[in-house]
Design a protein around this nucleic acid. Structure first.
Lengths: 126, 126
DNA sequence: TTGACACGACGAAGAGCTTCGTAGTAATGT
DNA sequence: ACATTACTACGAAGCTCTTCGTCGTGTCAA
């Protein structure tokens, strides 16, 4: 399984749309993005074409309106990004990353409980 | 307190050196970085000059060899970066970011315990 | 004092990212 | 059939990032 380049900001925005919508046309992705910020159709098209070259997405050309799909599931890419940031900014310390994340956006009680549950599960498995 | 642009990869590498060493000359930063990868002195110099323009670092020109210092403490920048990634890739879910981080680089038992301690402290404070 | 060295300033090249306009062509409706 | 619309492909501009070489000048030792 060859690894992929880290997606840029604009690319990541497109990936999030593909993850939430599933396989989509450029039109559909553009409509979602244009709703939150100005963006020309051809800009999104070009980005998605480049992403296909980079293998960040797969393209089905069966239909005239090509259908794009993220080539990796959300969890996989999230893992890459988290690991990357961990190495580059947190010297590998997951605890510090946790600190940073919780300080940045205060999490709900529900979320904190979920994190605990995750930790339990992790230690059980060992 | 004006906010700062997100540091690029090369800039972040320099910041980590400044955080760990404290105020340093270009020479000192270069020596650290050149130890792990090929890098010309003037490349590091140029980067640090640009970082000064961007206000990512402060420069003391008293001595002939200027002394550079990160303009924000490590924790502050880490918080920015974690929050940024949280928004861009994790839809704001700290739990998922945690998931990603722990899946990416398995943490030690000690580290997991530390994370728990942090959670405890967070909930107490409320 | 003069030669060797150290340092900052600067320009520029090459790559990547992001944006958009234009052109060509297929599909659709009147 | 013909005009309009929808779609892809492509090129290019403008910007940022990263790299490096060169220049001018200050510093220091022999």
């Amino acid at each position: 399984m060859p690894d992929l380049p880290r997606p840029t900001d604009a690319e990541l925005e497109i990936l999030t749309v593909l993850w939430s919508r599933g396989p989509s046309t450029v039109r559909a992705v553009h409509d979602v993005i244009a709703q939150r910020r100005p963006a020309q159709y051809t800009t999104i098209l070009k980005l998605m074409q480049i992403m296909a070259e980079k293998r960040l997405v797969r393209r089905d050309e069966e239909q005239r309106a090509h259908v794009y799909e993220a080539s990796r599931p959300r969890e996989w890419t999230q893992r890459q990004l988290a690991g990357d940031l961990l190495d580059r900014a947190f010297a590998g310390s997951a605890a510090e990353l946790m600190m940073g994340a919780l300080a940045a956006r205060k999490a709900s009680k529900k979320e904190l409980a979920e994190i605990r549950r995750m930790l339990d599960q992790l230690e059980e498995g060992r």
